[in-house]
């Protein structure tokens, strides 16, 4: 295990004010010992990836309940690749139909969570992913 806490940038891209889930998850990640940078509402894929670069984040978590998940996850993933963050985890949640989750998974997006999923499941997933995906630069 790394000595540093896992660092997660959490943000809500686009026009979507449903921030209950993002906030609950952010707090659960902190209680699990992770460091969370919560960017809040009305972020763009560019602002989220810029923050992840600046913070040298291990994980980017997006919350999308607006139906625009295909646009936002795809764009953030592409920007991660362009900016040398291709070895970091992109995960998140919202109202995201299974079919769309499968499409996004093929583009390199990690597991996505939805209503009813326990925040601890997200904590567990991030730990597991970190343990099996050493960073490219170490």
């Amino acid at each position: 295990m790394s000595e540093h806490p896992i660092k997660v940038v959490v943000g809500k891209p686009g026009l979507d004010g449903h921030d209950r889930g993002a906030k609950v998850v952010a707090r659960a990640l902190v209680e699990a010992g992770m460091e969370v940078v919560y960017l809040g509402l009305r972020q763009t894929p560019e602002s989220i990836v810029a923050a992840a670069l600046e913070e040298d984040a291990d994980v980017i978590g997006l919350s999308v309940l607006s139906g625009a998940h295909m646009t936002h996850f795809t764009r953030v993933r592409a920007l991660m690749e362009e900016n040398g963050l291709g070895d970091r985890l992109l995960t998140g949640g919202g109202i995201i139909p299974t079919k769309d989750q499968e499409t996004l998974s093929k583009l390199g997006v990690g597991k996505l969570f939805g209503p009813g999923d326990d925040p601890n499941a997200i904590v567990g997933y991030i730990h597991e992913w970190m343990a099996t995906h050493p960073r490219g630069d170490v």
């Binding site: 686009g14 026009l15 009305r42 763009t44 607006s66 139906g67 625009a68 295909m70 646009t71 936002h72």
Partner: peptide
Amino acid sequence: PLAEGEVGRT
């Protein structure tokens, strides 16, 4: 620009 992907969604 911020409307991209959101038009008519919800």
